[in-house]
Design a protein around this nucleic acid. Sequence first.
DNA 1: TTTCCGCACTCAAGCGCATTAGTAGGGCAG
DNA 2: CTGCCCTACTAATGCGCTTGAGTGCGGAAA
Lengths: 362, 362
Amino acid sequence: MRRTPARRPTMKDIALRAGVSESAVSFALNDRPGVSPVTRDRIRRVAEQLGWQPRAAARALSGEGSATVGLVLARPARTLGVESFFLQLVSGIQEELAERKLGLLFQVVEGLDAECATYRRWWAEHRVDGVLVVDPRQDDPRPDLLGGLGLPAVMIGAPAPEVAEGESPAISTLGADDAGIMAALVGHLHALGHRRITHIAGLPEFAHTQRRIASLRAEAARLGLTEAASVTTDYSDSEGAAATRRVLDRDRPPTALIYDNDVLAVAGLAVATERGIRVPDQLSLVAWDDSVLCRSVHPALTAPVRDTAAFGRHAAQALTALLDGAPAGHTQEPLPRIEPRGSTGPAPTGPQEGPSGPPKSS
Amino acid sequence: MRRTPARRPTMKDIALRAGVSESAVSFALNDRPGVSPVTRDRIRRVAEQLGWQPRAAARALSGEGSATVGLVLARPARTLGVESFFLQLVSGIQEELAERKLGLLFQVVEGLDAECATYRRWWAEHRVDGVLVVDPRQDDPRPDLLGGLGLPAVMIGAPAPEVAEGESPAISTLGADDAGIMAALVGHLHALGHRRITHIAGLPEFAHTQRRIASLRAEAARLGLTEAASVTTDYSDSEGAAATRRVLDRDRPPTALIYDNDVLAVAGLAVATERGIRVPDQLSLVAWDDSVLCRSVHPALTAPVRDTAAFGRHAAQALTALLDGAPAGHTQEPLPRIEPRGSTGPAPTGPQEGPSGPPKSS
DNA sequence: TTTCCGCACTCAAGCGCATTAGTAGGGCAG
DNA sequence: CTGCCCTACTAATGCGCTTGAGTGCGGAAA
């Protein structure tokens, strides 16, 4: 015995009650000319009183767009839900979207193909007016796809694309200064005396992974570090731990490790703890993305602190600009500050000169 | 110079090309009687070839529902994005929704009022066909609200509601056996010899927090533990650390701590590490929700391992059943298995008998 | 006074789909 | 051959909103 829910009022109801035509109601409620201020007020009052809200489908059908933007997350389930980055980002995105009364259609898929298929379907069904794209890749097919579909999009964390003079790019981009952050991190460690630095990176197919790797190499060359290297992982804790073990087992193990996200870093810290390697006395650790996690563990992890929510907000702003008809363009996020915490300290010196630790519990 | 995007085909295009009326197309594509098998096939082929997809808004407008379900997350930004629980849950939800071609409209808001306002707006705008509700509360206003609106809903992690015989509840519920898990955790610790157990709980306004607290009390009474207690937090790492410090500073500190989520637990572990308290020799720790995090830290945290993605899938299934016209009902998740890891061990014995640790670094 | 214009508003069409009512044509019983 | 039903389809309507094309009216210009 389910109560029949209250019927939702339509513009017709308002028109009837206000004694005007539906068109007048439409004009009044959309701030269009064609109604006198008095009538407008009256209509507005009636609408308010009836609790009227425009029916999304009807709006969309008459060419107004769906008032929705999409976001697809394509990550294998294993590495999903471990980084605080995404929820923070989404939280920031929402702040901006809420102001514009835009909804966020969210989808989690397994891989890139499914992601592209989702974009196509959303486009074909007119479900979204635009999309936010994360995790830019090497030779990314998505800008072309979205550009071809004419679906407004913002690629988050991508450098400015190269386009011919006068041309405008297919989609907007919001850059995070990966190279700059890497340089700052290496600089921080170098200043502490570290000369052997290893970078435990994320998925090699992501463009930012490549940029970070390249930047490390460049910085190492600049500073004359001959023993700087990167190893890639899938962002999972298990690969983070495994990579850490492998790296520490080397003949001349690094004295400092840079991890591409917080999960990898925490896994690395656990390996150090397990081996009895003192952090930061024998080994310094840095996490790329700051998070509650980095501050929760002991010692707390040194990390670049950026305002991820603001990052999301800016991305959403770039998208709404696009929806308003602005041409696609590039925005650059400011360089975050490196916050030194307990996990980094002066490089070890003396005979041992490295994190070999007590007898390995191989 | 943006290319004009390809025009998306409509049923009219199909009708034209197949040489039939629009109605025939509609019948054919919706498996309705009224077209011969031959014509149906022809129409289907044309549709396929044109890459036709029904336009969501048009469908919705003609009474088919929006093919979208909603999910609102109402948590203060501070505690957002720290738990892997939600993304895992959403990931599971999506698996089920994808099969039914349902979209997920996602919203992050600051508080309960905003959450309710979101439901009202979605309902008024016909934006969603149903919603998934998380974080049930004491005296939760949402079931009544949603029931009154006639918006199908599944409350995740709620016990079966009390309804009069023959009546059906306003919304469906999907129960997680909080009491059972707590009993199992206490049983695990009790078997290890622990007699002084403290529960670092989450937000007191959540119903599951109260159930856990009540269950701890009941188990303690049953087992004759006089020194079991719960303290509540806001789920943040800082309160988790603070609560841990406070509890450990007591005259007779507990020998085991149960944390209501992984973030709290990791924060607690960091406090122990910082104070030089050996885990699990001097202090045992348990985290409520398993996650990569629990396995990443050292020692790894004992936790009940449940399949959170499956949980989400079941919730989505309950909702789709509702959308199919089934009456609201209750489903119960199975009791998860407790996985003992490095963070729990036998209760400390001897003169010291507790985790006072080395001189406190007050 | 007449003409014209602009304001305030109404009418009607249309967005893409579902659906109900209608219609042509063929098979079958009478 | 007529009347009837059934199948296979078409025509028309409506969902709620926007929008371009009217329409009636009062006031300013001539």
